[in-house]
C-alpha cells in the first residue's frame, strides 16, 4: 500500500497519532467508572497505527510498529495477566484475587491493591489487544512486493 498523494491527509494522520494514543491510555485508566478498559483502549491504541499505515503507506506504519516489537508483545500481555493471577495465588489468595497481593488483612489496604491488580490486568489485556489488532491490519494489508519477498525467504529456508 502506497501513501496517499495528499499532503494534508498524511500530515494530519501523523500529527494525530500522539493524541489518539494518549486518549487510548486515558480510556485504559477509566475502566472502572467509565466506558473504558483494556479491550477498548487497546483497539483505540491500535487504530493510531492503522491510521498511520493507511495514510502514510504500509512501510511507514510498519516502521512505527515493527514485527519484531509486536510479536513479543502478543504473548507478553497474556503473561502479565497470568502473572498477576498466579502472584495472587502465591500470596495466599484465590486465582486473580487482587486483594491478596497486599499481604495484609486491613480492608483499606486490600481495596487499594484490588485497584492496582485490576489496572495491571487491564494493561495486560491492552498490550495483547493492541498488538493483535495492529498485526492483523499490517499482515492483511501487506503489499504484493513485500509478500513476494516473504515467500522467497520462506522457500529458501525450505530448501536449506
Amino acid at each position: 500500500m502506497r501513501s496517499t498523494d495528499s499532503l494534508i491527509v498524511r500530515y494530519i494522520a501523523r500529527r494525530s497519532v500522539p493524541f489518539i494514543q494518549l486518549y487510548a491510555l486515558y480510556v485504559l485508566g477509566h475502566g472502572e467508572d467509565g466506558p473504558g478498559g483494556g479491550f477498548q483502549g487497546g483497539v483505540i491504541f491500535a487504530s493510531s497505527f492503522v491510521l498511520l499505515g493507511l495514510a502514510n503507506g504500509w512501510g511507514y506504519g510498519r516502521r512505527a510498529a515493527p514485527a519484531r516489537l509486536l510479536d513479543p508483545l502478543l504473548p507478553l500481555g497474556c503473561l502479565i495477566y497470568l502473572g498477576i493471577g498466579l502472584a495472587a495465588l502465591l500470596a495466599g489468595g484465590a486465582f486473580l484475587e487482587y486483594g491478596a497481593l497486599a499481604g495484609s488483612d486491613d480492608p483499606e489496604v486490600r481495596r487499594h491493591w484490588h485497584h492496582y491488580g485490576l489496572i495491571g490486568i487491564e494493561v495486560g489485556v491492552m498490550v495483547t489487544v493492541s498488538a493483535a489488532m495492529a498485526t492483523l491490519f499490517f499482515e492483511m494489508a501487506r503489499p504484493a512486493r513485500v509478500q513476494a519477498r516473504v515467500d522467497r525467504v520462506g522457500e529458501e529456508a525450505d530448501r536449506a
Partner: peptide, 16 residues
C-alpha cells in the same frame, strides 16, 4: 477540536 480537524480533512480527501 478533533471534529474541526478531522471533518475538513475527510472532506478534502473525499473531494480529492
Amino acid at each position: 477540536f478533533f471534529i474541526f480537524i478531522f471533518n475538513p480533512t475527510a472532506t478534502h480527501a473525499l473531494a480529492r
